[in-house]
Each structure stands twice: as structure tokens, then as C-alpha cells.
Design a protein around this nucleic acid. Sequence first.
RNA 1: GGCCCCAUCGUCUAAUGGUUAGGACACCAGGUUCUCAUCCUGGUAACAGGGGUCCGAUUCCCCUUGGGGCUACCA
Length: 511
Amino acid sequence: MSEIRVRFAPSPTGQLHVGGLRTALYNYLFAKKYDGTFILRIEDTDQNRLIPGAVENLIRTLDTMGVHHDEGVFIENGALAQKGEYGPYAQSERLPTYKEYAQKLIKSEKAYYCFCSISRLAALREEQNKNKLAPKYDKYCLRLSHEEIEERLAENEPYVIRLNVDENRGDIVFDDLIRGTVTIHARDVDDQVLMKSDGFPTYHLAVVVDDHLMQISHVIRGEEWISSTPKHILLHEALGFPLPKFAHIPLLLNPDKSKLSKRQGDVAVEDYLSKGYLKETLINFVALLGWNPGSGSTQEIFTIDELVEKFDLSSVHKAGAVFDLKKLDWMNTEYIKKLALDDLYERGLPFLSEKEFFKEWVGHQNILSEEEKMAFVKRVLKIEQDRLAKLSDIGENNPFFFTNVLSYDGALLNWKQNTAEETRKALESAQETLSLLSDTDWKGKEIVEKILMDKAGEKPARPEGGKGDFLWPLRVALTGVQHSPSPFDVAWVLGKEESLKRITDAIKKLS
RNA sequence: GGCCCCAUCGUCUAAUGGUUAGGACACCAGGUUCUCAUCCUGGUAACAGGGGUCCGAUUCCCCUUGGGGCUACCA
């Protein structure tokens, strides 16, 4: 096979969409797998929709996701830069090139000038609509004489250049790597505008010229482009360009099966990142939407390197895939569980630092050194790690680690039918047990756990009693709530002094 | 409306011209457990319908239905 060159070509009109991420990822995986080149091209031909900073943002997001490109537009020292033999890679910088090819098309009569006003086009469309006809340009300006065209150009009348589709071309057939043979008749192809009146090309001209000039071997893009592919094929033919291979990947869908849209939830990769989804999760999840290794494999968790190894365009699905947040959460939980504690700390701290209860805690812990604070947070994370669906959940369900717990009702301390007196005994016993532990004993949570579990295993207060007689009051004393991690885990996190203080406070509540 | 694409549990999907149609998420039940979560075990749940082809179709073909995309001087 000749050299593989693929591209991801977003428009800088906003943040990177999860669908865009998947398109970029499939391009990336394909390129890596076959030792090809992955190019990032910027399709900024619509001057009205440009958003300042969007290019930088797109590049940064792709970069943090680990979907690195080899060629195209980059950020270097905080500024946009371009690398590669086939630049420039931003279409707005390639205007002369498009103009040149547009002129070639005019000369060969594959394209023509059109001076029709917006209002005439609107009226035409309305008329066609009324008559239940497909809205198509009626080639009105194709009938203009050379002289008239020259005259109107000389008078600086606004114009566009349109593709001259010949109905006699018959069926336009292409072989899609994912869908097989796709056929569309030339009569169903509109005389698409190629050059707009502002001198910018439309997507259709730009994509064909650039894909050819940049030697793109495979066009891997979203399914929404299938119906414009015949236009692109006609353009390749008109310009004498060889055809790249096409692969149209299925759409990402809302739960109602419509094209994934902002209206029905988050669509920006950054939204998910800022909610505490790991980049590894997002890559893994999005990769599996419309693709899987097949052959009976039941693997669900893949590193990006494994994806590179196993990815194959031929096993990409044809049907769209719903973006299921429940499964995303599950997968994120899996990834968080596997994180090394230091890694979890590093990634999680920014999320924790946003929380009000954490800010207050930090303010109240002036006596603690930075190291002690870090150690404390790491203890919290060690306990919470298996319980987190998202990094933003850190501390969320267990704020008692960071706040005092005085506000609970003392009756909550009583386990089942136990009396306040029985509860008091249990708490005093816990108090005594914990006060015997040295600071060294508190270093690891094993000793705290063992000594408390041993105590809990001793003679129950009543015949039908059990560990709950001892553990429940202790847990409530330490947390003030009915649902929490185990009391020995909480005690270990809080440390000896704070634990004993909370137990003392609890005992006071009983009187 | 026109054109195009698509169709296995609710969702992501596997497999096959002959299987008890498999896995994962979610859900439900049980177990572990001081609570919650985790964890373990089990369960509910799918080949859209109709014609063909074939000894035999979920699988191949056609039609219907359903869903989606496109239908701009947006990409």
C-alpha cells in the first residue's frame, strides 16, 4: 500500500465535539496502525462563523486527549505554527490556490459564474418546494453569454462560481470502506457553489483541492458527508485528481437517536473533562462507539496503544451509536480505580480545590504543613477511590472528612433497638481502644482496622447483637451521617486526635 | 417532499447458512457487610415485519416499516 495520509479537518467554530474527537481518533488510530501521517487542517472558510481562539482550543484539547498529529497546525510557544511540506494548513491562508483551481474549472466549463441574487435563489427554492421538487439551482446563469459575463465582472457585480453538474454523467458510484458501494445519480446533485462572493471557497472546493494537494490517501469523516461525496467526486474528475479512499463513520446519537446535539446534553470534550471524566475514559469510550475488535472479543477496556494495534476500518459499524452516559460513568469508575494514588491526587486536587467545603477546610488547617494536608487528602482519596464515578465526586459524598459533624441528631447514634446507655458503652469502648494506639499505629490503616474489628467482634451487648452494636455508633460519631465508608477507614483518615474528639462529642450528645 | 444511509436485548455490541443467539452497561433478586459503595452469584431482556433463495435463514436477495443524515454563498 502506498503511504497512508489522513486528516482531521475541523472548523474553528467552537469547542471540540465528542463526535469530532472520535473522528479525529479513528483517523489517528488508522494512521498509527499503518505507519501513516495524521494531519490537522483547519477549515476556516466561513468567515461568519469563526470564533476567536477556537483553533488554539481545538489543538490543545486534541493534545490533552493524546490524539497527536504529525503535520498541520500546531501551537508552539503559545502561538500558532505550522509544520509539514504541504502547507499552509489553514484554508484561509490558501485562497490563491482555490482561486487558481476555480479558474481551471471555469476554463474547462466544469464550473460557471453565477450572478443570481440571494432573493432569486430563495424564490426559486420556495417555488420548487411548493411543487414538491428537490431544491436545486436551475442553471440560469449557465446561459449567460461570454460578453455578458465579462461585462458584469468588469462592473464588479458580486458573483459566485458554481459546479456545472452534467446530468448525463449518470450514476456516481463510489466504494466506501465502511459502507460498500454507494450510488447517487448526477441529476440529484446540485450545482453547488464552489467560490463564494466573498472570495472564499466553500467546503466542497477546499476539501477536494486540499485533500489532493496534501496527498490525502483516506478521507475518514462523519456520515453526514455521504451525500456531498458525489460533488467531491465530480470535482476530482473535473480537476483530473485521483480519488482518495472514502470511509464514512457512523454518527454519534442522542438517546432519542437524533444526531448528538448540544440541546440534549454536553457535547464538548472539555465539558466531560471538566466534569471529571478521565481522558483515557473518553478515548476508550468513544472508540467503542461504532467499533469493536470483533472476533468474539469481550474486552471493554483499551489503552490507546491497544486501540492502535486492534483498530480496523473494516470493522467500523454502519449504524449510529447512542452516547450512553451510564456506561461512560461505569467506564470512568473503572479507570479511576486503576489510578495510582499519587496520580489520582494530582488529577483530583484541582476538582477538590473547587469545593467550598475544601476551601474552608484549607483555611482552618493553617496549623498543618502542606505535606500534612497532602497526606490527609491522599488518605481521603485512598478511601474514596473505589467509590468515585468522576473526579468531581471527590469529597462530595463524604464532606465530613473536611467539616465538623456536630449537627446530627444524637438518636442516630443508636444501632437498631439499642439504648442510649448501650451506645454510650460502645463509644466509650471505642474511645478507650483508639486512645491506646500510638501515632505509628495510625500510619497505615491496617492496625486501626484490626483493633476496631477485634473490638467489634467481642461479646455483643445483647444476644442477637453483632458488630453493628459497636461499629454503627462509632461510624455515626465520626461522620454524623447514616451512609459512609467504614468507621476504621474514617478514623484512619481523620487521625487520632480528631477521631477521639468526635467520639467525645458524640458521647455528650447522648446525655 | 426528494436523494442517500442504516436496522441483534432499553443502550454499546459478539457470533453463525444449522447455537440454549454470547458479553458489557443499566435494571431486578440474592450473598458478603455496621450503613452506603465496592465485590460475588443469579435473573429479566434482542435477531422490526413480509416475501423469496435454500434441506435449513437472525445471517443472502427483494419489498414494507421504522430510524437517521443531507437537501445554504455552514462545515
